[in-house]
Design a binder for these strands. Structure first.
Lengths: 193, 193
DNA sequence: AAGCTAGCAGACAGGTCTGTCTATGCCAAG
DNA sequence: CTTGGCATAGACAGACCTGTCTGCTAGCTT
C-alpha cells in the first residue's frame, strides 16, 4: 500500500514538491530538514540519500523554480504572437500571472540570494539564473530591433525583478500592469520602426 | 578608561552600528545575538536591556536603514535642482551611489522581508517603509505634472526596487545608469510639457 | 562615604538545527 | 526461499540559537 504510493509518487518527487512549497513560503533557511521530512512523509535517511546536504536540496529547489519561471516567461512571450516587440511586452503577463497566484511571495532567487552567503554554491546558482534570463531577453531585444539590446534588456529585467521583488512585501495586483505599461513605453522608445 | 570609551560611544550606539553592519551583510536571521555582542564589545545583559527581544533590535536596524536610505533619496532629488521632473530623475543617483558603496548587498527591506514572517512586526515595518517612500515619489510626480502620478510613482519605485534588489545577486555598476535612463524615458512620456 | 546607574563577564536553560547511525519492514529478482 | 535494495522510524551528537540570571566593576551624585 505504502509501496504503491511511493511507486505513484517516488520519494524524491515528494521531497522536492514539499521543499518547493516550504522553501518558497519561508525561505530555505526558515525551514528545517525535519519539517520537510514530516511534511513529505519520508524518512530522514531517505532524504539524505537523495540530497546529501541540505544545500543540495536547495539547489534542486532553485533548479525547479528556474525551469518553472523561465518556462512561464517564454510561454507568455510566445502567446503574444510572432513580433519580437510584442513578445517583449507579452513577457510581462508572466509577472501578472505570478502575482495573482495563491501564496505569491516575490522572487525565489532574490529571496534565496538574500539569505545565502555571497560566493556559496547556492548564491552562484541564483546569479546564473538571472544571467540566463537576461541573455534570453537580450536576444529578444536584438530581434526586436532595439538600438541597444543590452541596455533595453537590462531595463526590462530590472522592471520584472522590481515587480517580483516587491511581491515579498505586498502582493499588489496592479503592480504588473504598471510594469507592463512601462515596458511598452521603453520598448517603443528603444526600437525604431 | 573603558568608561571614557562608553561615554564617547554609548553601548546602544555601538550595538546599533554593529547590528547594522552584520544584519545588512548576512540578514538578521543569519546573525546570532552572540555575534552582535562579541563584535560590539558589549555585555549580553546590556544588549537585552536596550533591546528586550532580538526583533526590537531588528526593528531599530530597519529604522536606521529607513532614515539613511530615504535621506539619500531626498538628498539626491534635492541636488538635481528645483524642477520636480529633474528631481525624479536625480533620485536615481542615490541608487548609483548605493551600488558603488563597499559591501553593497541590495535592498535591506526586501532582504529582511524575504526572511521574516508575513504579518510579523518586522515584516510590517518593511511594508511601511516602501509605503512612505512611494507616497513621497507620488507627490513629486504630481508636482512634476504627471498625467497619472500614482502610475508613474509605481513605475519609478519599481525600477528602483529592481535596481536595488538585484544588488544582492551581483553589484553591477551599470545597472543604475540603465535605471536612470529608463526613468528619464518614463518621466518624459508621462509628463506633458 | 554611600548608594545608584551603567556596563562587563559569563554560566545556564530550553529549544532548534544539521547530519549520522541503528534497527526494522517490505518487495522483487534470482 | 533467500538475498539485496529501498524505504521507514527514530535516537543521537554536536553545534548554535534566544533569552534569563548572578556577580562584579567603575564612576557619578548626593
Amino acid at each position: 500500500m505504502r509501496q504503491a504510493d511511493t511507486a505513484a509518487r517516488p520519494a524524491r518527487e515528494r521531497i522536492l514538491d514539499t521543499a518547493f512549497r516550504l522553501f518558497y513560503a519561508r525561505g530555505p533557511r526558515g525551514v528545517g530538514v525535519d519539517t520537510v521530512i514530516a511534511d513529505s512523509g519520508v524518512a530522514k535517511a531517505t532524504l539524505y540519500k537523495h540530497f546529501p546536504r541540505k544545500d543540495d536540496l536547495v539547489l534542486a529547489y532553485l533548479d525547479t523554480v528556474d525551469q518553472t519561471w523561465f518556462g512561464q516567461l517564454r510561454a507568455a512571450a510566445r502567446d503574444a504572437g510572432d513580433d519580437p516587440r510584442a513578445q517583449l511586452v507579452g513577457m510581462f503577463d508572466a509577472l501578472a500571472n505570478a502575482a495573482r497566484r495563491e501564496g505569491y511571495h516575490g522572487c525565489a532567487f532574490i529571496n534565496t540570494a538574500a539569505e545565502s552567503e555571497t560566493g556559496s554554491e547556492v548564491h552562484a546558482r541564483t546569479v546564473e539564473h538571472k544571467r540566463v534570463v537576461r541573455a534570453w531577453v537580450t536576444d529578444l531585444a536584438r530581434r526586436a530591433g532595439a538600438v541597444d539590446p543590452d541596455l533595453l534588456s537590462r531595463q526590462l529585467t530590472m522592471l520584472i525583478d522590481g515587480g517580483l521583488a516587491v511581491g515579498v512585501l505586498d502582493a499588489d495586483p496592479t503592480a504588473p500592469d504598471a510594469a507592463k505599461a512601462a515596458a511598452r513605453a521603453l520598448i517603443d522608445a528603444s526600437c525604431p520602426r
